[in-house]
Nucleic acid binder design. Structure first.
Lengths: 341, 341
DNA sequence: CTGTTAGCGCGTTCAT
DNA sequence: ATGAACGCGCTAACAG
């Protein structure tokens, strides 16, 4: 029952602990003769190294998350999730920090990245804005040997080591498939409301949505596309205008934030629950809309998973450990009123 | 940068390490005077105990998963997930074992529970069969001070410490809501195919499904309910019979396993993709059916999450650590062809 | 090439 | 009530 320790193996192999250690970790200077006997002893006793004890004095490494400031509830959730990393933290001997920067300001974001305290810095994760200065700042970090991970929104063409987030085209396709099915084979007119089509993820979602409708639900047509700047009031007005043109619109796919505005407009026009609404992210406002019957489905990416995945990936990159790609894929969750967590 | 250690706190407080340790863990025999100074030092330095170092010599504890044998792919996945616990294993100083027992045999399951090697046994998780002997065996373990966790299927009325799995009524409601929406407001006739309605989870799912239809989709009616014994061939015949009576059935909700049989029957009758099919568990066969367009949605419970959750819960129960209920809730996943992971 | 020694941070005696 | 000392399993540095 008692653990098999290095010492046990050493005794069994008739060598010293240090020798076993060298064989185990493939360090320099092992005689092939004793290496064999050690291996044999390891197999026989079923020795499993305790990663735990190995790190009693692990160096404390810093990992930084750079997230958008502002009141976007989704981003706030991300920030909270970083805070919840604490249990791990103690186990890993690592510390995770959050820095928040203005969302749409590429220069500010770049400056924040450049200005990060370098002491002990072992990795950076950021919600990337697609901007040349940001790209350069990321490349600087990379050049300094600090791995960078993009979160939620990718930055292709940069030296970022990895992207942690959902496949936004697939997310759009999922929304499209739901919308199509919800029409039950009948012809219908739907609209898309996005935050800003300068944002990479919004564009991709819209693309996936349209594509799946074209492929599989030919009689469901996208008749209008509007921008709401991810803002409640702007979005509300956009939807008011939309409903004025298409009074009995069958569905709306909301790509970005500001969904409270959509719900308001639907209610004001007596269309809540009639015009089907599918949106992204399980925020408090979307949850309320689902429960009230004003929204029928939410496509979600789990903040907690994303942050934990980013942490794992950064740790792996920092220590040269391999990454299990399969495990780090972020799921596209679908929530109806009935399976709200 | 360097970690704040017990020693640092001790120096700062002008006491010895042992004293700090006593204050920290609330052991007997602390002078209230120095206790205050220690607390003050802890706060000032921001000391966080390293759970890691505390366990360098942690006793190896055994946790056993008792899973159904047989070829049920879902159960096999569970079993595999236990195997993947190894990364943790090393970190926790715990070892996780799997025992597989015949599914529908209460006596055998009870015997397996009674016969578990007790040495170092710190917790048991089992997929419970609702049977008096099983209930008694669970109570025996409980009486012996070994916490028991039910997995996937609960055993109410027993001394099991906790249930780890999805809310099956909610899962059924989710399936029902999807089915209802997929009809697009048109009237429709659907059927339910279950494994066996002696199984608690199957009953609950069916209940949730019917209830949500009655509440929200009054014109979608359940016209038939069949049992397929979770077996492919039996299920196929059941569906053949079903289609004979209702040639243009609009939808089938499959509560249990054996879905390949349903797909076969649908294809044979030219109803694949026409009769909507919603089933449970993202097995290889269901994934294939989704991709082929013969199935439209899968309600899933994530094996990996369930096993890891059970492991966390058992560990917490064994060590008296509190359980974060929120974190241990198992989600009800919805998968369409578009968001397959 | 190999063994010995000295820690790592914490829990646990055992004296004081 | 308190502190010094040892041990946990492992790594790192130094001798041989």
């Amino acid at each position: 029952m008692a653990r098999v320790t290095l010492k046990d193996v050493a005794e069994a192999a008739g060598v010293s602990i240090a020798t076993v250690d060298r064989v185990l970790n493939g360090r320099a200077g092992n005689a092939s003769r004793s290496a064999v006997r050690v291996q044999e002893a390891i197999n026989r006793l079923g020795y499993a190294p305790s990663a735990l004890s190995a790190r009693v004095d692990a160096a404390r490494r810093r990992f930084v998350f750079v997230l958008p400031s502002g009141e976007n509830p989704f981003m706030s959730s991300l920030s909270e999730a970083v805070g919840s990393l604490s249990d791990w933290m103690t186990l890993e001997g690592a510390v995770y920090e959050t820095v928040r920067v203005d969302v749409f300001d590429g220069a500010a974001l770049a400056a924040a990245l450049d200005g990060l305290e370098r002491d002990g810095l072992a990795g950076v994760a950021l919600v990337a804005l697609d901007h040349p200065m940001v790209r350069e700042a990321v490349n600087h970090l990379h050049a300094a040997g600090i791995p960078v991970v993009t979160l939620v929104s990718d930055l292709p063409g940069s030296r970022r080591a990895r992207y942690v987030g959902i496949d936004n085209i697939a997310a759009g396709r999922t929304a499209g498939a739901l919308m199509g099915r919800f029409m039950g084979g009948q012809g219908a007119e739907v609209a898309i409301v996005g935050g800003s089509f300068d944002l990479r993820d919004h564009v991709e979602r819209q693309l996936g949505f349209k594509r799946v409708l074209a492929e599989e639900f030919g009689n469901v047509r996208v008749v209008d596309v509007r921008e709401g700047r991810d803002d409640r009031e702007t979005t509300r007005r956009a939807v008011e205008a939309l409903l004025a043109r298409h009074p009995d619109l069958a569905g709306i796919y909301s790509v970005g934030a500001g969904n409270a505005g959509i719900v308001e407009a639907l209610k004001a026009n007596g269309r809540a629950g009639k015009t089907l609404l599918i949106a992204h992210e399980l925020t408090a406002e979307n949850r309320a809309a689902l429960l009230a019957g004003a929204m029928q489905a939410v496509i979600n990416q789990d903040c907690g998973h994303e942050i934990r995945s980013a942490a794992r990936v950064m740790r792996a990159l920092a220590s040269g450990t391999p990454i299990v790609a399969e495990q780090e894929r972020i799921r596209i969750d679908v929530f109806l009123r009935e399976n709200l967590p």
